[in-house]
Every structure is written in structure tokens, then in C-alpha cells.
Amino acid sequence: MSDNDNQPPSPIYRDAAGHEALPLTLDPSDDAVTEFVDTVNALGVDGRWLVGGLTDFLRRQKRSGGPGMTAEERKFVIESGAMTEAELVASERSVARGSLEKSAGELWLRTYQETWSANTAAQFLGWTQKEVLVAAEEQRIYGIPVRGRLRFPRWQFSLGSPGKLIPHLETVLPVLTE
């Protein structure tokens, strides 16, 4: 056994193409995790619920695990002028690091930001939370379940409309939710 056998693994590894890349695992004590927790806490929201919802979303993401482009496909992309070899390598590295999953997570967070809690929707509409939840069950307003709670997309609310909901929402919702 050599001295290197007792050393922790190097933080640098080689991807399938032989390029140096960062490790794929994240340590709970990593500065990025601490920064994430601090950022969520600074939002002043139910952080456990928000992180749980994001975790559930990310857990549903499926990596293709495929081999990537064939040599012929790579050649075509480069020869077509769509990307240079360097751009293609950078793109492959980015995807390997999780750029697609990161983008999907960012979209989930933006979508979350465009929703209201039952309490906020109730305050806006002048209803009780129970009335909001019943209206969602009856498809008079639209609610999205996230970690056992409904979130209400803001697009359906309108200060300038009677009842503060966009006109004909009840007619459209059954079609949208099929």
C-alpha cells in the first residue's frame, strides 16, 4: 500500500472526455451550502418549506446518463459553424456540472416567486383561507400543490376585474387542468 492510498481523493477528476472537472458531490459543510442556507434565511420566508419544495423538484430531475454526442455529431456541429470545438467542450462541461438542472431549478424558483400562499390570496380577495382552498378545490381559482400546500399563480388575480380575478377564469380552468 502506498502513501497515496491513505490520502483523500483529489478534488480534481477527469470527465469522460479526459478534461479536468470538479467533483460531483457536495459536502454539507461546503461554503456553498452555508451561503445557500444564509440566503434562504435572509428571505424571511418558511425556509424549510421552500428548500423542501426545491429539493422535491430537483429529486424529480432525471439525468439522461447517455454518452453524449457521437464523433460524427460533434464534427457536424463544429463544421456547421454552430459552435467551435472550444465552445462545444465548454458546453459539455457545463452540462456535466449540472447547468440544465440549475436552469430548471431557477425556473422552479421564478415560478414559485410568481405565486401567492393561500393566506396572501385570501387577503387580496377579501376571503378567508378556507374560502380560497374551497375555490381551488372547485376549480374557481388555480392552485399548484407544493409540499402539501397550495400556491396560487398571480396571473389569475386582477385588481381591475370584478371579484379581483381575471374574467372567465372558472370557464378556462377545467380546460387548463385536464
Rank of each mutant, 00 (worst) to 15 (best):
D3A: 02
D3E: 10
N4Y: 12
N6A: 07
N6Y: 06
P8E: 11
P9E: 00
P9F: 03
S10C: 13
P11M: 02
I12P: 06
Y13I: 15
R14C: 02
D15G: 02
G18C: 02
G18E: 00
H19E: 10
E20L: 04
L24D: 14
L24Q: 12
T25M: 10
T25E: 15
D27S: 14
D27H: 14
D27Y: 06
D30L: 03
D30I: 04
A32W: 04
V33F: 03
V33G: 02
T34C: 07
D38N: 12
T39A: 13
T39F: 02
V40E: 03
L43C: 08
G44R: 07
V45M: 13
V45H: 05
G47F: 04
R48L: 11
W49P: 01
V51E: 11
V51H: 04
G52T: 02
F57P: 01
L58I: 15
K62N: 13
G66F: 08
T70M: 05
T70Q: 08
A71F: 10
A71P: 02
E73L: 10
E73I: 02
E73H: 11
F76C: 01
F76R: 15
E79Y: 03
E79W: 04
E79V: 06
S80Q: 13
S80M: 08
G81Y: 04
T84Q: 09
E85V: 02
A86H: 14
A86P: 05
A90M: 04
S91D: 00
R93M: 10
R93N: 09
R97W: 06
S99Y: 01
S99L: 07
S99P: 02
K102H: 13
L107N: 09
W108T: 00
L109V: 09
R110S: 08
R110V: 12
R110I: 11
Q113C: 07
E114N: 14
T115C: 11
T115Y: 01
T115G: 01
W116L: 05
S117Q: 04
S117K: 00
A121T: 05
A121R: 01
A122D: 12
A122V: 11
Q123R: 15
F124L: 09
F124W: 08
L125Q: 02
G126C: 06
G126K: 06
W127M: 13
W127P: 05
T128E: 06
T128H: 10
T128F: 09
Q129K: 14
K130H: 09
K130A: 14
V132K: 01
L133W: 00
L133M: 13
L133V: 14
V134Q: 15
A135W: 06
E137H: 14
E137A: 13
E138H: 14
E138Q: 15
I141P: 05
I141N: 04
I144S: 09
I144A: 10
P145R: 08
R147A: 12
G148T: 06
G148R: 14
R149D: 00
L150H: 10
L150D: 02
R154Y: 07
W155N: 08
W155M: 14
Q156A: 06
Q156W: 05
F157T: 03
S158Y: 00
S158L: 10
S158Q: 07
G160M: 08
S161N: 12
S161V: 00
K164S: 03
K164M: 07
I166A: 08
P167Y: 08
P167V: 05
P167T: 11
L169C: 04
T171V: 12
V172C: 00
V172E: 02
E178G: 12
